[in-house]
Simulated scan of single mutants.
Amino acid sequence: MTLIDDALLAARLVTDAAQLAAHMRTEGLEVARKTSVSDVVTDADHAAEKLVVETLTTHRPADGLLGEEGAARDGTSGRRWVIDPVDGTYNFASGSDYWCSAIALTQDDVAVLGAVAHHATGTVWVGGPDLPTTANGEPIGDREDLGLAHLSVASYLHPSGIAHDHVREPFLRAASGAATLRMLGSGSMDLVGVATGRIGAWFQHSTPAWDWLPGAAIVAGAGCSAVQLELGGLLWSAAGPPSATRELTARLTGELPA
């Protein structure tokens, strides 16, 4: 079993999950609230995760599992698949096409592979630190290294975070250095956008593993940087061309003021 074998399996998993979720949306969704009105889950999330878990149980029985909707299994191989069956569920449930299915493979807790399927365009991106990122099997090439001032930056900030200095101030420092700010609602789609150049750079705090690892691996496969740092009791994640990522982290920590 090689990394290419895992990449082919990952592409199949996210494609199948996205197809199932999209089909279920056309039939009508059952939507439930998780932690807030904007944090929702649908029956399609659960069904797509179940499909991925069943396939991995058959084809990679020694590997561990971690899914956003509750799947969890300790493996014996040192490897773990991190599953986001529908990333951007609020968008998905609202009828937007800015959502995807995503998965990452980790070895000893380090991401070695990510795959993201965008059903609306029929595009599947796969990549990792040692696997150049492809879109539907075609290499996308490395990003040009540009500074933050030349780039858009995507992020997410829950409205409640505005009231807290340890959230608001780093966020404003980072965002103020970019050409423009975008909030689009799917971390994995945003990170794919960083890899392809559709989005300049990205940062966010308290990003769950399933929202970070698939896209971070794909970003790395496109010659970009993906880093995390502890600040004020929060874990911040940042990604982009190397120069922009260095500036984002410097702004987050206050080395560069707003």
Rank of each mutant, 00 (worst) to 15 (best):
S101R: 02
D84C: 09
G95T: 00
S96V: 01
G88K: 06
S96D: 11
R79H: 14
H119G: 04
L65N: 04
C100I: 04
A72P: 00
R73F: 02
A117M: 00
A104W: 08
E54P: 02
L56Q: 10
G127M: 02
T121D: 14
G95E: 06
P61Q: 09
T89S: 12
T57A: 15
A72Q: 15
I103G: 01
G88P: 04
H118C: 13
A71T: 13
A115W: 01
D108V: 07
D97C: 03
T89R: 06
H118D: 14
G114A: 06
A93T: 06
Q107I: 09
S96K: 10
Y90E: 15
G67P: 13
G75K: 05
G127P: 05
T55M: 15
Q107M: 07
L105E: 05
A62F: 11
W81K: 06
V124Q: 01
G75Y: 05
I103N: 00
V112S: 06
E54Y: 01
T55Q: 15
G67F: 12
R60A: 12
A115P: 06
V112A: 12
I83F: 08
G70M: 10
I103L: 14
T106I: 04
S94P: 00
L66C: 01
T76K: 07
E68K: 09
A62G: 11
L66H: 13
T58V: 14
F92G: 08
L113M: 14
H59C: 11
I103F: 02
Y90H: 15
L66F: 11
H118S: 12
T58W: 03
P61M: 05
Y90A: 15
R60Q: 13
S96H: 10
G114M: 02
Y90D: 13
G95W: 00
V86D: 01
D74S: 14
V86Y: 02
T123P: 01
E69M: 07
T123G: 10
G70A: 09
R73D: 07
A71E: 14
A111K: 03
H119W: 09
G70D: 11
G70C: 10
H118W: 11
G70E: 12
G122M: 10
C100M: 06
H119P: 00
A117E: 06
T76E: 15
E68I: 05
A102Y: 02
I103H: 01
T58Q: 15
H119C: 07
A117V: 01
V110W: 05
I103Q: 04
R79Y: 11
W81L: 06
L56C: 10
S94K: 13
H59D: 15
D63A: 14
V82Q: 07
A62K: 13
